[in-house]
């Protein structure tokens, strides 16, 4: 009977929680600009069309891994007929996306995606330089 105040406070608290993303984004002046990954300077075309790479690069990399590790097949033919060695470090990183922090990490941090790639693969520019 005399619990109205408590009930209304609870309701208000719930509504604050429900709308917390809006309060946070408005107060922190978050914009819908996006992560804006930096594409590599020299190259124009990735190993597959950009729409495919944007949504499915992880599938491609897993296919590469399975192909190299389990079948020993190293050669990848892109949809437009070019040939690449299936290697994250030597092909993706060394030839184009050397700046992981400006490319991979931008979107992965934006989306909170923890990729296990770097548990094994070299990722820093300096290390890459010393690898044969």
């Amino acid at each position: 009977m005399r619990d109205r105040g408590i009930i209304w406070m609870g309701l208000a608290l719930f509504l604050v929680f429900l709308t917390l993303p809006a309060w946070h984004n408005l107060s922190a002046r978050v914009s819908a600009k996006g992560p804006q990954p930096v594409p590599p300077a020299g190259q124009k075309q990735c190993v597959a069309p950009v729409e495919y790479m944007r949504t499915s690069h992880m599938r491609l990399l897993l296919d590469w891994r399975d192909s190299v590790v389990r079948r020993g097949a190293q050669d990848y033919t892109s949809p437009d007929g070019r040939h690449f060695a299936m290697s994250l470090t030597n092909t993706c990183l060394r030839e184009c996306h050397s700046a992981k922090a400006d490319f991979c990490d931008r979107c992965h941090n934006y989306e909170a995606v923890a990729v296990p790639c770097w548990d094994c693969h070299m990722d820093s520019k300096t290390l890459l330089g010393s690898v044969k």
Partner: peptide, 21 residues
């Protein structure tokens, strides 16, 4: 289907800051 989640997040943030695109 593997939707473009970066575009989805940009859209969602646009909704939360009342500048929907």
């Amino acid at each position: 289907a593997r939707a473009d989640t970066v575009a989805i997040k940009q859209f969602a943030i646009g909704l939360t800051v009342f500048r929907p695109a």
